[in-house]
């Protein structure tokens, strides 16, 4: 245990690291829970793959090619794949932080017991995020492997795809955590899922360029974090990198920070009475 003096003299970064380090306990707990059910997690790999095959083969055969802003035409599958990668990262993170955390928070009361130990709210929040991140990265890596195998990686920029996808997953874990503390009943899941996740999935340039829509709607679509995640990851895998992608990244950094602050506050409100 760090002495009070040591804690006091350490900077903010040192203290933040302490929290992350202690948060590993929560990851260990989740590993323990899933130790006998790892196959449930592993089988989640199938989901984006089904989508890639289904949409790629089914629709790809009909749509054939999509024109990029730089004049190139790429196969529809290559167009959709990075978007499915970003979506997989989002879904993995959001599922863990919204559904699982909600049940632990409200029904299982898992955190009440943990809070009686030296673990604090920050440790719990960060721990759950780390775990969600690990889960999301499993799906991201498997998607990347498949994309490489199918020749859907069109640019050396793609080397950056993995870290960027992890950052996307972190952003959505923080967002999910910020949101879950607002939910009261199981029926409330409709709100984040139906009003946020689903529309984002459909309208963030996932399956078609958003230029198909009128400008006002485009502006609205560009406000979502998934839009920027897809734009950034698509830029990396297709080699379409420019100022826009720099802005995408800046936007995600801002969104991540905001989500983190809200998540911490809300968890505190929810757990401390």
């Amino acid at each position: 245990m760090a002495s009070p003096v040591a804690v006091a003299t350490q900077g903010g970064l040192g203290r933040a690291w302490d929290v992350v380090w202690r948060a590993r306990r929560l990851v260990e707990r989740n590993v323990l829970v899933y130790r006998h059910q790892w196959i449930v997690i592993l089988s989640g790999v199938a989901e984006p793959i089904f989508y890639l095959i289904g949409i790629g083969m089914g629709l790809g055969g009909l749509v054939r090619t999509v024109g990029l802003p730089d004049g190139r035409s790429i196969s529809y599958t290559a167009y959709v794949a990075p978007a499915l990668l970003a979506t997989a990262a989002m879904n993995g993170a959001v599922f863990e932080t919204i559904f699982n955390v909600f049940f632990k928070l409200n029904f299982r009361k898992t955190y009440d017991g943990i809070l009686a130990t030296p673990m604090g709210i920050s440790e719990i929040a960060i721990g759950e995020m780390l775990w969600a991140l690990m889960r999301a990265s499993l799906y991201a890596v498997s998607m990347l492997v498949l994309m490489t195998a199918l020749g859907l990686i069109l640019s050396p920029w793609a080397l950056l795809t993995l870290p960027v996808t992890l950052f996307v997953a972190a952003t959505f874990s923080a967002t999910g955590l910020a949101g879950t503390a607002f939910l009261r009943t199981v029926q409330d899941f409709d709100i984040p899922m139906g009003l946020i996740v689903m529309p984002m999935f459909l309208f963030s340039g996932t399956f078609f360029p958003i230029s198909a829509y009128p400008i006002p709607i485009q502006v609205f679509m560009q406000a979502t974090p998934l839009f920027h995640s897809i734009s950034l990851i698509r830029g990396l895998t297709t080699g379409l990198m420019g100022l826009e992608q720099v802005w995408d990244f800046a936007y995600l950094v801002g969104f991540f920070s905001l989500a983190m602050v809200i998540a911490m506050r809300r968890m505190e409100r929810k757990l401390i009475k």
């Binding site: 707990r29 323990l32 829970v33 299982r108 009361k109 009440d112 017991g113 943990i114």
Partner: peptide
């Protein structure tokens, strides 16, 4: 020992 048990029901 809290008044209401809060064991980790997943373990």
């Amino acid at each position: 020992v809290p008044q209401v048990d809060n064991l980790d029901t997943e373990l």
